[in-house]
């Protein structure tokens, strides 16, 4: 991965496994000391990564039902946008989202959250 050795701001991509390892309309969990990350795969093979913690009461988003570009939290049914990590209105809050990319059937993840969700205290 050429991205790895570059200037300061360079994103560090971490290979987490083949795309097939994540079920369509499903998610898998990456165990991270700072807080687990859920990696989602939509029906048309888009991949997104969010902190695996619901902005409502911390439910595990990875366990929810994935539909469209959203996941429904299994605890109290908040809907979270997979691309932004922001809760679907009228609910308010967000889960930090992490850069992901798929190359040659492999999924790469960055552990540095995008700045879309300041609330993500780790």
């Amino acid at each position: 991965m050429q991205a790895i050795k570059m200037k300061k701001q360079a994103i560090e991509w971490l290979e987490i496994g083949p795309l097939e390892a994540i079920p369509k309309q499903g998610a898998r969990v990456i165990i991270v000391p700072e807080g687990n990350i859920a990696v989602f795969r939509t029906v048309d093979d888009e991949v997104f990564a969010l902190r695996d913690r619901c902005p409502h009461k911390g439910g595990q988003l990875s366990q929810g039902i994935v539909h469209g570009k959203k996941v429904a939290c299994p605890m109290h049914d908040w809907k979270i946008n997979l691309d932004t990590g922001v809760a679907v209105a009228p609910d308010e809050g967000c889960a930090a989202s992490f850069p992901v990319r798929v190359e040659g059937g492999k999924v790469f993840l960055s552990l540095t959250p995008g700045d879309g969700c300041p609330g993500d205290h780790v």
């Binding site: 079920p23 499903g26 029906v43 039902i65 539909h67 469209g68 429904a72 049914d77």
Partner: peptide
Amino acid sequence: TPDGCNKCRPALNFYLLCAWPGEYIDDNQS
């Protein structure tokens, strides 16, 4: 919607399961 929501998909999964026993392949993601 492209692939339904978490309200209709579980319902549809059951309706199909009930209508086509032995034939319908259960959709775990629903």
